[in-house]
Amino acid sequence: LYWHGSSASRMLRNLRGGTPACLTVSHLDGLVLARSGFNHSANYRSAMCFGTARIIDEPDEKLKALAGVVDRFYPGRSETLRPISVQEAKATTVIGMRIEEASAKVRAKGVGDDEEDYGHPVWAGVIPVRMVVGAAEPCPRLLPGVERPQNLAGYAEGERLDRALTQAQLTYEGEL
């Protein structure tokens, strides 16, 4: 597992020798409104990954990890970009962590009111939350003739982000 931050970060510099860490990621899928405050909830997906975080100093591993950050969302794009500059690499700390343990949790259900509350006259239900791609906003300084590449077609206005990411990976792997 890799992530990155500023080389000026004191917190990240403290990882130099390696330190036990927990990286947690959560994604909100819906707001659950019940008939009592106690039974309000949220639908979500979350993961907690445990391991020893360390700074990646080896230049090839660091560059590969930084390319992976870009390619996770836009497969193959790092190959089309200008190479990272020495200053950019110096300004970026890359942290790596082998996942030693992990835990995941999902809540994906409706209202869980107490039986006696179902007769209370107040609206209850789930309000879904989605990450949706908006309309592309081309840079006003694009060179003449530079078009949006076909491998970004999945990032269409109105498409759910999870579907766009999946399509980008499958297209890159030649499965679509």
Rank of each mutant, 00 (worst) to 15 (best):
A47Y: 06
R13S: 12
Y172E: 11
A136S: 06
P138M: 10
A42T: 14
N151K: 10
R16Y: 11
T52K: 11
I56Y: 02
E88M: 13
M48I: 14
K90H: 12
G51Q: 06
P149S: 08
M97N: 07
H120Q: 01
P121M: 08
G158P: 00
G96S: 10
V70E: 05
I55S: 03
L12Y: 04
N43F: 02
I56G: 00
I99M: 11
L165G: 05
G125W: 07
D117A: 09
E88D: 11
I99T: 13
A156M: 03
E79R: 14
T93Q: 13
H4N: 02
V122R: 09
L33T: 08
M97T: 09
F50M: 09
Y2N: 00
D114F: 10
R163M: 09
A156H: 01
T19C: 01
L143S: 13
Y44H: 04
L161Y: 01
E147P: 10
V32G: 06
G119P: 04
A156C: 01
A21K: 03
V126Q: 07
G154H: 08
S6A: 06
D162F: 06
R77P: 07
Y172D: 12
G68V: 09
S7P: 02
G112D: 15
A34K: 11
N39S: 14
V111Y: 13
N151C: 08
S9H: 07
G76P: 14
V146G: 03
V25H: 03
S7L: 00
S46Q: 13
M48Q: 15
A34N: 10
G5A: 03
V106I: 15
P138A: 10
G145L: 08
F73Y: 14
E159S: 13
R98P: 03
L161N: 02
L152T: 13
R10Q: 14
V94N: 03
